[in-house]
Design a protein around this nucleic acid. Structure first.
Lengths: 190, 190
DNA sequence: GGTATTTCTTAATCTTGATTCATTTTTTGA
DNA sequence: TCAAAAAATGAATCAAGATTAAGAAATACC
């Protein structure tokens, strides 16, 4: 649904019909089945993805050859490898659909064109980017101020619905510990 | 030096003389002595600080009553508590000068006025914000993929000059471990 | 509907880095 | 310049969570 994107933008800045039209022409809708990759290592990331339905994850393979998830994106979140997108260098990440999803995709190039034609988007992305940064900082704060167990309980209480949607091992990965440890603390819970 | 700010902005977007004038009128220069606080807990953060000389740190007091540093800002970096700035709620952070510093300060209010008068700034802050987010994500990646010792050695090799500027215990705090552990790995180094 | 693959659990042992407490070294400021 | 405060070091003990290795339970798919 294209509307999901423009509706989200309109929560932050004003768009007239011409703007909406421009945006809708610049983006493409993709249906992605569970486990499909939108980005793989050694590829240059050239697009940003807005999740209109479903769930994506961003992860890399660490030295111990385990998947390390660094981000999830659900409805109304953007997902991309901004590092690769900016630098034009190959990514070291995977972006993969965790559920059958619908994403609205826009290339970096088209986005830059859009910034010229609809300058309010510049503001929208500034705001969205700032929120993303604040959230990321908050996450670092949590990492450094809670134990793994505390972080698990904290996350569960903040996002009870979300933890139902994804396999436990993915949450363990996102929170930075092993599935075994996750089982241990869940067992304790009783 | 006001020029430090406008020069930095001009690395990302074009400014004409009128823009520069507007910016210079909106900001104020502050000389801050080492250990001076620019923000303390329970205060609402209403400003953003651009470091034109010196070094600031952002930290909070964790449950164990230790200082936990989450960010440093040196020359040409912005520092603020975006969470408090955005929400208008009291901060739980300290922003403190680590060295005698010169900061260029702008209030959230004035900045919003500036966005109207000089829309290129919207782009500048979008770009700066995006870089900050990318850096923050990169940091989370490091936290989750290296041991504390590895992270210390990695950081030291990336920023050899910076580690000379700050006390070791502050670096230990930023990297998320104790000064004692830091001593241990430094001793090993020989 | 049954087999194969994924996901989750349990338990024993091992490691990294925290804690505690004491001492030394360096820096600061009157 | 010298006393006091701040910062760094060292060593012994402890704890959180990793690792390894099974096995059990769910889910997916043919």
């Amino acid at each position: 649904m294209l509307n999901n994107l423009t509706n989200h933008i309109k929560k932050f800045v004003k768009l007239d019909e011409a703007d909406e039209e421009l945006i809708n022409q610049a983006v493409t809708i993709k249906s992605v089945k569970k486990k499909t990759f939108l980005l793989q290592p050694d590829h240059i990331c050239r697009e940003l993805y807005f999740v209109s339905k479903g769930c994506l994850r961003l992860y890399f393979i660490n030295k111990k050859l385990n998947e390390q998830i660094t981000q999830f994106a659900i409805e109304n979140w953007w997902m991309s490898d901004h590092g690769s997108l900016e630098s034009g260098k190959p990514s070291s990440y995977y972006i993969q659909a965790v559920e059958n999803s619908e994403v609205i995709s826009i290339s970096k190039l088209k986005l830059e064109e859009l910034f010229e034609k609809a300058p309010q988007l510049e503001r929208y992305f500034r705001i969205v980017q700032q929120r993303a940064f604040t959230a990321s900082q908050k996450r670092i704060e949590y990492i450094y101020s809670m134990s793994d167990e505390e972080r698990y309980r904290h996350f569960s209480s903040l996002f009870p619905d979300f933890i139902q949607r994804i396999p436990q091992y993915m949450l363990a990965s996102y929170l930075g510990f092993t599935p075994q440890f996750m089982s241990k603390i869940r067992a304790k819970k009783v």
